[in-house]
């Protein structure tokens, strides 16, 4: 198999890799905020349960969570295994990344001085207005570097979808490597991930720069 054929075959899987990546971000970024708010809830049991769930999600391998989401329902309830593996894969990824984003958000929210809330309160901002207009924009700026880190990790983590037989780029690479008894597909995969991450890094850098108008 020529290198070109390899690259073409693996690029076909790249679409699925991108699907995991973008869908995970679309769902986990807002979900993380909900989890963060529950985690900081004044209702003790809510905060406690959320905290427990976060520790489970952060304290167990993503690969296990993928297996649990994909095959768990079958083993537990005899439910059928999804034919379209993108669904369980995105669910598992989104939940896992939401836990990480939640902790990043929480750190960001807690780093905003109380005075900002008080100033807004005295000026008659409602709670929602205070959060959306005053707190959140400042939080986003502060957490951008940590979020970038997670996003870069996510690019590489997409390869874990292989564990539930989702045929993304790395899975195809492994298949080719296996049938051709060749290491080249792994090299190609490495280059793909690297280029992907260079683009991600550039995009995140642009966003950070756009938030640079204040200190």
């Amino acid at each position: 198999m020529s290198l070109m054929t390899m690259i073409v075959k693996m690029s076909e899987g790249l679409g699925k890799t991108c699907a995991i990546f973008f869908l995970t971000l679309i769902f986990s970024l807002p979900l993380g905020m909900i989890v963060a708010l529950l985690r900081m809830s004044k209702i003790k049991p809510v905060a406690f349960v959320t905290r427990f769930i976060i520790t489970v999600l952060r304290g167990t391998p993503l690969m296990l969570q993928l297996l649990a989401v994909t095959y768990g329902p079958y083993y537990l309830f005899g439910a059928s295994v999804a034919r379209n593996k993108l669904i369980p894969v995105v669910i598992a990824f989104a939940i896992n990344y939401a836990a990480y984003f939640a902790e990043i958000y929480r750190g960001g929210i807690e780093s905003i001085p109380v005075g900002q809330y008080e100033a807004a309160e005295v000026l008659g901002y409602t709670r929602t207005q205070t959060f959306m207009r005053i707190i959140l924009p400042q939080v986003i700026k502060r957490i951008m570097p940590s979020v970038t880190n997670e996003v870069v990790t996510l690019v590489k983590d997409t390869s874990m979808a292989f564990t539930v037989s989702y045929q993304e780029m790395f899975t195809i690479g492994k298949q080719i490597a296996n049938s051709q008894t060749s290491f080249t597909p792994f090299l190609v995969a490495g280059v793909f991930y690297y280029v992907f991450n260079v683009i991600v890094d550039y995009a995140m850098g642009r966003i950070e720069k756009r938030l640079d108008y204040y200190k």
Partner: peptide, 18 residues
């Protein structure tokens, strides 16, 4: 053709109807 990384997963996919 769906490639799985273990035969157990192959059978689970079968029994689970995927």
């Amino acid at each position: 053709v769906l490639t799985c990384d273990s035969f157990l997963k192959c059978f689970t996919e079968l029994q689970g109807g995927a």
